[in-house]
Amino acid sequence: MDVIPCGPGFGAELRGTTLSDIASDEDTYTAVRAAFEEHSVLVLRDQDVSDDVQLAFSRRFGQPEVTKVGSQGTGTYFVVLSTIGPDGSAVPPDHRMALRAKANQLWHTDSSFKRLPALASVLSARIIPEHGGETEFVSTRLAFERLAPDMQQQLENSYAWHDYAHSRGQIAPDLASPEERAALPAQCWRLVWRNPANGRGALYIASHAYAVEGMEASAGKALIDELTAAATAPGSFYLHQWRIGDVVMWDNRATMHRGRPWPAPEPRLMVRTTISAAETDGLASMRPPFGQAAE
């Protein structure tokens, strides 16, 4: 297996291996896990991917999430990202499915709004248009390392609140349903997630983040916006141009990502599995020393 760097200081393409190889062979998995910890974003092209193959690969890295209420794939291990309606054609831009896709065009990290956040996400391309719909990634690890030492120290002991309804409200006031709001109360996590495999810290921010514990509301939001702008500065991102058979895996502890607009009304279908973080992934240090759910 070859590991080919492909981004500005992070990201790598894996060549000479398959999802099935990684799921079944201990040595291959060990090498891929090391590449994941180092590069944060891994790209595998020309994969013969199915739901079963993707799930077996994902299980190798940890426990897959069960898809939340309100998403396509609810109750399964798969998040279905689609613009295809019941009649088989692409939905119009004002359709709820299209608005949810638009929300994914905000810079974010998956599942920061959940009681158990995510270690990694695995996204496979099943049906895609010929143009558009790229995914952009930035390294919040490199962003943290670019900060002044005094700012790093301040953030190490700061906590941010994350809420699914907050990010969806940036697209439409009622995009998060009452069922989703009830199931997903706001969560609070340390602003810096240290990787126990290499000791490197990364900003843990997202479009879901709306407040900083102990700071006045506007000041906390301004800090989150400042950190997001710094992490997503021009020249800092890796842009992935999708092809059928592509699989991309990313570290939600150390990256943010966003989708780019897809041509309308062309259909597309992508499938995501999300791997929950475990204590061994540094989760214990992320919890605040106070109640987790917002009042």
Rank of each mutant, 00 (worst) to 15 (best):
S139A: 01
C188E: 14
R115C: 08
E179M: 10
P178S: 13
A206Q: 02
E226Y: 10
D25P: 00
R100A: 10
D174Q: 15
G214F: 08
S58N: 06
F137L: 03
E13G: 01
K221M: 15
V43I: 15
A197C: 05
L175W: 11
S124H: 11
A125T: 13
E136K: 01
R45G: 02
Y204E: 13
P92F: 14
S207K: 01
Y77P: 01
A278E: 15
Y204D: 11
S58V: 13
T280L: 12
I205H: 01
D52Y: 07
I22N: 03
Y164A: 07
P129C: 05
V91G: 00
W193R: 03
S71E: 15
A160N: 10
K114C: 05
G214A: 05
T273Y: 08
C188Y: 11
A202S: 03
P185V: 12
R45L: 10
R181I: 15
R287W: 15
H39C: 05
T280Y: 12
E266R: 01
P178N: 12
A101P: 00
A231M: 08
I22K: 02
L42T: 09
R146P: 02
D251C: 00
Y29Q: 11
W250T: 04
D52A: 10
E295M: 14
A34C: 09
L106I: 07
L191Q: 10
M215W: 13
S50Y: 09
D27Y: 09
A118W: 06
V69T: 10
T30W: 11
R194V: 14
G259T: 14
L142F: 04
G75E: 15
R190N: 12
M1T: 09
A294D: 15
D246I: 13
R268N: 05
G132C: 04
L227E: 14
T232C: 00
D225Y: 03
L223C: 06
I4F: 07
F290Q: 09
E26I: 13
A206H: 00
K114G: 04
S124I: 15
T109L: 02
V49L: 13
C188A: 08
G62C: 07
E226N: 05
S158Q: 12
K102S: 07
N195K: 04
V80G: 01
H131W: 09
P8V: 11
Y29P: 01
S50C: 05
T255M: 01
R253Q: 07
P92A: 09
G16L: 12
H208N: 05
F237H: 10
P129N: 03
R253D: 09
A23K: 08
D246L: 12
Q154C: 02
Q47E: 14
R258F: 06
L155V: 07
K221G: 09
H162S: 07
R59P: 02
A148C: 05
Q54Y: 15
S111C: 03
R33A: 09
A182Q: 07
I127D: 12
W189M: 09
V192T: 06
I22S: 03
A197Q: 11
L184S: 03
V212P: 00
P129Y: 06
V138S: 01
N198Y: 11
E136P: 00
S218C: 11
Q154H: 03
N195D: 15
Q153C: 03
P185F: 08
L175Q: 08
A209V: 12
M249G: 02
F36P: 01
E37N: 05
L142M: 09
L123Y: 11
A103E: 10
D2H: 06
G7Q: 07
R200P: 00
E37K: 04
I127S: 04
T280A: 13
L239I: 14
R190L: 11
W250G: 01
